[in-house]
């Protein structure tokens, strides 16, 4: 029917970036399973996948009660030794039985939630990504955000991290729904930290779609964080040196991490490209990076001038 997921992204709670080998240890969530690491064009480490059992109502826009039983597939990732993610998703399918089956039935279908009774894909999609989406007050229904949040906490609580992050920045959450159909993508900013993504892709769902959503979430978080840092620097409203000092974390920790679509399969890159045209993530990123660099350059010039003047005196 459809696939729904939620990605939570945050700054790794460590003073500096962590090495590849530390990434491997931090993400070793399961005995006997290896952490997958890719090094080009940026170090990206992915934990083994874990399942969480659920049996609950699914979010619907119509508020009709739809019961789903199955497992949520979750994993954690660390990008550039600096950005941490907890990511979960479920493939929603119709159940062939109208009652709950023995648990082993669901474990034979990892990451699938079976719907008992009637449900419409559009109703579920709207319920999950619409404004009155879960996490809110409405009755208990599938809470992928909580699952992803716990997986992100699991990484952040690793004893290998020193928990002295260089700056404070909120986590962002990206709730996404993917369906098969005419290609389209809709990215929506809700509150400061909440985003939704509706994706229609040709052909059947593959885990590459999850990679795309995680990649978008990483870059949206980078952009959001850089914006926050630039805003906090109060350029123009404060002393140049002070502004530059406030911009320093961006230079030290964020600016080299922008690698859009680096881990996205080729058939899905058109989705990234269309978002690059409108709203133009990279355009905004470049403009912010230029702004940071210009501030540093101006400040350097001012310093050089001051030194030269002091020398003349």
């Amino acid at each position: 029917m459809l696939v729904m997921g939620e990605v939570h992204t945050g700054l790794l709670q460590n003073s500096g970036e962590i090495s590849e080998s530390t990434c491997r240890q931090v993400l070793a969530l399961m005995a006997g399973e290896t952490v997958r690491v890719s090094r080009r064009p940026i170090v990206h480490a992915l934990s083994p996948e874990r399942l969480t059992g659920v049996d609950c109502a699914l979010p619907t826009a119509s508020r009709s009660r739809v019961r789903g039983v199955g497992t949520v597939m979750s994993r954690c990732a660390v990008t550039g030794g600096r950005v941490a993610q907890g990511s979960s998703y479920v493939r929603v399918v119709r159940s062939e039985a109208d009652r709950r089956l023995p648990w082993s039935h669901y474990l034979a279908r990892p990451g699938v939630v079976e719907v008992l009774g009637k449900a419409k894909a559009a109703d579920l999609a709207e319920g999950f990504t619409g404004d009155s989406a879960p996490g809110g007050t409405g009755g208990a229904c599938l809470n992928l955000g909580a699952v992803s949040g716990r997986f992100l906490d699991l990484v952040q609580a690793s004893p290998l991290l020193d928990r002295r992050a260089p700056f404070k920045i909120p986590r962002t959450s990206l709730r996404w729904v993917a369906e098969t159909g005419e290609p389209s993508i809709r990215f929506t900013l809700h509150t400061e930290q909440e985003r939704t993504l509706r994706l229609t892709h040709p052909g059947p769902f593959t885990p590459a779609v999850v990679d795309l959503c995680e990649d978008l979430a990483t870059h949206d978080w980078l952009l959001t964080s850089l914006l926050v840092i630039v805003e906090r620097a109060r350029i123009g409203g404060t002393q140049g040196a002070q502004a530059v000092a406030r911009l320093a974390p961006a230079i030290d920790h964020l600016m080299h991490l922008w690698m859009p679509a680096a881990r996205v399969e080729e058939w899905l890159t058109p989705f990234w490209e269309s978002l690059e045209r409108r709203p133009g993530f990279s355009r905004q990123w470049r403009s912010l990076v230029d702004r940071v660099r210009d501030q540093v350059a101006m400040n350097t010039l001012a310093l050089l001038n001051a030194t030269a003047e002091a020398g003349r005196r």
Partner: peptide
């Protein structure tokens, strides 16, 4: 090789009804 640990990490608890993921099992 710690086979028992390996299997322990692969346990996924059978969820009672109304388990929505908001709390750990």
């Amino acid at each position: 090789v710690e086979l028992a640990r390996l299997v322990e990490d692969r346990l996924v608890d059978d969820p009672p009804p109304e388990t929505d993921g908001s709390r750990p099992p």
